[in-house]
Every structure is written in C-alpha cells, then in structure tokens.
Nucleic acid binder design. Structure first.
Length: 255
DNA sequence: ATTGAGACCTGTCGGC
DNA sequence: TGCCGACAGGTCTCAA
C-alpha cells in the first residue's frame, strides 16, 4: 500500500468490533499511503491527508491483495475493500469481527484510547529487565496476567505469554511482584523473562517467512497432559484458567 | 486504583 | 450423519 493512492473504500458492513468512524470511507478516499507501521498489535497506515488509519486484526482478521474485479473479490466476511489506483484491491476479512479500524489525525495519535498507555515494544532495547521489574513492582496479580496487560509490555498475547514463561522457567502462577524483588527467587527472573519474550517473538516472526509445517510450534500451549519439551524434564503439561484465559505450564521446570 | 469476570463473535471440535 | 454446546482468541466494560 505504501505509495499507493486509495481511490475508493468499500464498507460492506457498518462496524467491526465497534462502528467505523463517521465518514470513514470519504475521509480515506483520495489519500496516498505514506507509510505502514505497527504499534503493539495495531497496524498504522499514515495517509497523505494527515490522518492515520489505525487497524487491529483482532483474532481472525487478515488482509489480502487481489486484482481489481477478480472473481474471488467479495467473499464471506470481507468487510472492507480498499480500491487502489494501481488496480489492486486490499481486502480486510474478519470472520469473528474482533478486528477494529479507526481514523486518527496525526496530532492525536499518541492520545488515542487504544494507544495511550501502551507499554514498551518487547523487541526494542527499551524493554529490559529493569523496565519489566519496575512495571511489575507492587502488582498483586499473577505474572501471567501481568504479561497480558498491554501497559506492562505491548503486544504479547496469550500464547506467547505462556511460551515465554515456560522458556524462562517461571511459573505463571507466581505473583508479578516477585520480578521486582531484588532478592526474590527465582534469581534474575526478570532478565530471563525479558530474554525469553524477545526470543519467542523473534522466532514466531521468522517462522512466518519460513514456511514450514505448523507441528511442534509450541512447547506448552495447547499441550495439556503431554510431556514437557525441555531437555530431560519429566514434567507433564498442566492447564488452568487465569484472567479468563487458558494457561499451560510445566509444574516441574517452571518455578 | 487495581483486579477479575463477562461480553463480544463465529468457526471448529467433541460428545451424544 | 447431524445437532448442540463448549471453547478459543484480544480488548473493552463493568463491578467488586
């Protein structure tokens, strides 16, 4: 989309997770996309009009690019179509409609409700052990719940939170505040957790470009009652609910 | 203020 | 074979 002019926007329904903003299609039409970036799980398309298109894929959202007028253009759950001047159509599809789009003027981006208060990007240098420890200080909730809190670190979802905790050898049931306790066990938990988060995310991103079978993707997620994949660990993966989401962990090697 | 539970939505899956 | 309920995810809203 970068450099492309958006000639027309087709809204095939009035809302996703929430209604589209007023005159959404009209405000986007005619603009050229200057850049496409990301913040947390949000996509941002900077438009020549001065507005930014703020988008979230929710659970099931996806974009695909098709030749204008192609036979498969209007499928089920195709909710938004960006018709580009180049002759390509960019189609947003989202069966569960947990996705979201908004239009925000550049000056108000930082204060937008969805972006304001977001924690550091996990893959940036700004996300380090000290930062994580500080964010967890005094929290009485579990480490797992803290990792899902986008104010602590932006962009971790349930699966990668669970995977990162396993790699770091930290039980998801522990209180978040132990990460802040200098002498608190386990030793340097914050440092190990930060490293594990970066590793898990980097590998996940790599895997998308390296097309390979989706087997053995996860070490704990969705593996209840299966053997722990850590070397020589005799543990069996358990499942329980935390903050309304499924947590998977090894009771032997995660402490 | 912090925390947790419930709602939203629909494709998929297990059980009957 | 077909139906039905449970479940998954991310984020927001509401209540404790």
């Amino acid at each position: 989309m970068v450099g492309a002019r958006i000639e027309r926007v087709e809204l095939r329904r009035p809302d996703l997770r929430s209604p589209f903003p007023r005159r959404f299609a009209q405000r986007v039409a005619g603009a050229t996309t200057r850049a496409v970036t990301r913040r947390a799980k949000y996509l941002l398309a900077q438009l020549s009009s001065g507005d930014s298109l703020l988008m979230h894929l929710g659970m099931s959202g996806s974009f695909r690019v098709v030749v204008a007028g192609a036979a498969d253009e209007a499928g089920a759950h195709d909710h938004v179509v960006f018709h580009l001047a180049s002759g390509a159509d960019v189609v947003f599809n989202d069966p569960r409609r947990f996705g979201f789009m908004d239009l925000v003027s550049a000056s108000r981006l930082d204060s937008h409700p969805s972006l304001r208060g977001l924690g550091p990007e996990p893959l940036s240098d700004a996300f380090d052990a000290a930062t994580l420890a500080r964010a967890c200080a005094g929290k009485r909730t579990s480490i797992k719940a803290a990792l899902l809190d986008q104010r602590v670190v932006a962009g971790l979802g349930n699966i990668y939170a669970v995977e990162a905790l396993h790699r770091a050898g930290i039980s998801p049931l522990r209180r978040a505040s132990i990460l802040a306790a200098p002498g608190g066990a386990p030793r340097d938990a914050a440092g190990r957790l930060v490293a594990a988060i970066k590793q898990v995310l980097a590998e996940a991103i790599d895997r998308q470009t390296a097309t390979r079978p989706s087997t053995e993707r996860f070490r704990v997620y969705d593996r209840e009652r299966e053997r722990c994949r850590r070397r020589r660990c005799p543990g069996v993966i358990r499942r329980r609910t935390q903050a309304g989401r499924s947590t998977f962990y090894c009771p032997v090697c995660q402490r």
